[in-house]
Each structure stands twice: as structure tokens, then as C-alpha cells.
Design a protein around this nucleic acid. Structure first.
Lengths: 109, 109
DNA sequence: GCCATTCATCGCCATGTCACGATAGCTGAT
DNA sequence: ATCAGCTATCGTGACATGGCGATGAATGGC
């Protein structure tokens, strides 16, 4: 249950600035991706189960499979989540690097 | 220029939980409010000028006055910003309490 | 090869967001 | 009282988002 299926720990730190036009755009994109209750819940699920979850997410949310898939796409496009193929199913897990980056950007406010 | 026009320092700390359904909704609402480049820029302006800014915000952004006013409304409804009437103009300033809350919620991920 | 499972994608519809100009409400000065 | 300046709100149009069911593509097992 808690075997990880995707992540290399990825501990390199991010040296990009937390201010300026690029940072503003980046922060806006990340918060926009997070700006929906279902997506927050998905991220929360992924933080709680140490390892990656696949379509169990669908079972945990009161939404259709296609809707959940769209939300996952938003999170993936924002870089907050990564999906890797694991046999017939797909294994999603957090991208801690991006989460750290988000914290840094918000901290810069 | 750096005379404050609204804020009582407001240092009471927020004891509400950073997880659970309510926290999810709250985080989604706050990040949604932040999820637009113009609104990030507005917040950034308000952090940089120590005091509150009023319609100078309009001058700093490449947007019409009505558009900026709408963005300010979004930020105000989310509690990230406060506006107080100051003579003929309106003085906006950050709500550091809400910003701290946002940091706490993101930290809870 | 064939089927069942899993997930992504497509259309579709309803609703929300973003931008604008125009208008209305307040306030302080004349 | 009137006028000028500042801001909020309204109405509108273009576009994005969120939700769903249906369809498609890939995989593992039979």
C-alpha cells in the first residue's frame, strides 16, 4: 500500500526568484490549478496515502470518472502531480518540488 | 506615503484546523481568488508599498478601471484585502491575517 | 485473437470568468 | 448648489470552466 511507484526524492532546491513578472504568472497558474475543492481534495488524498493512488481517487470523490480525469489533467499540467503508467492503470503521485515552489511563492507575498 | 490608513496589527493567531472538508473549501476559495496574474500583481503592489494604495493600482496595471475594481472585489470577498473609505478615494491594504491563514493551509499540504 | 478493465478524450450544455465602456453614487472643493 | 474626481456597479460579449455520458486507446488475462 505504501510502496512508491513514481517518485525519485528530488531534493534539489529551486533558486528561481519569488518575485517579478514571471513569478507572478507562475503563482497565478499554480493557485488557479488549486482553486477548486475537488482538486484540493485530490491533492490531500495524495499526501495522505504515502504512495501513489490511481483510480481510487474516483471512488473517494462524488464525481464521475471523466470529471476526475479532467481535474487530474489540470493538476498534472500545473506540475503539481505526476502520473506514471503502471500496468493497466495509472499511478498518480505528488510532485513535492512544485509544492515546495508554491510554498516559496506564497511565502514571498 | 507610508502612513497606514486601515490596519490594526491584528496579531491573534488562527486556531482553525488546516485539514478536513472546511479547510479544503477554504483553501480552494483562497487560491481561486489568487488564481489570476492581475490579482497576484495587485497583492504584490500592496505588499511593497507599506501603506495602502488606492487608485494608483489602476495606473500600475494595463487594465481598465472597471476591470481592476472587479479584481479588487474578488480579493476583498476572499478576505485577502480590505478597503476603507479615505475621503474621496478608497484605501486598500492587505489583510495579513488571511495571508497567514493561506500560508498555513498550503503548509498543511 | 478476444474480452474486460482502466483511463483519457470528445461532444455537449450550463454556468462562470474576464474584459470593456457606460453609468451612477460619493465626496470635497468651488 | 454645483462641479470635478474617484470608485463601484451594470450590461454585454467572448471565452473558459465544470459537469456528464459516450466513445476510444492501451493493457493484462483468458
Amino acid at each position: 500500500m505504501d510502496d512508491r511507484c513514481c517518485a525519485p526524492p528530488e531534493t534539489a532546491l529551486d533558486l528561481r526568484p519569488v518575485e517579478g513578472p514571471d513569478a507572478d504568472e507562475e503563482l497565478a497558474a499554480l493557485t488557479k490549478a488549486l482553486g477548486h475543492p475537488a482538486r484540493v481534495q485530490i491533492l490531500r488524498l495524495l499526501t495522505h496515502r504515502v504512495s501513489c493512488v490511481c483510480g481510487e481517487i474516483v471512488d473517494q470523490l462524488p464525481l464521475a470518472q471523466s470529471t476526475v480525469s479532467q481535474h487530474l489533467k489540470v493538476l498534472k499540467d500545473a506540475g503539481l502531480v505526476r502520473g506514471e503508467i503502471d500496468g493497466p492503470r495509472i499511478c498518480y503521485c505528488l510532485e513535492p518540488r512544485t509544492l515546495r515552489r508554491l510554498r516559496a511563492l506564497i511565502g514571498g507575498l
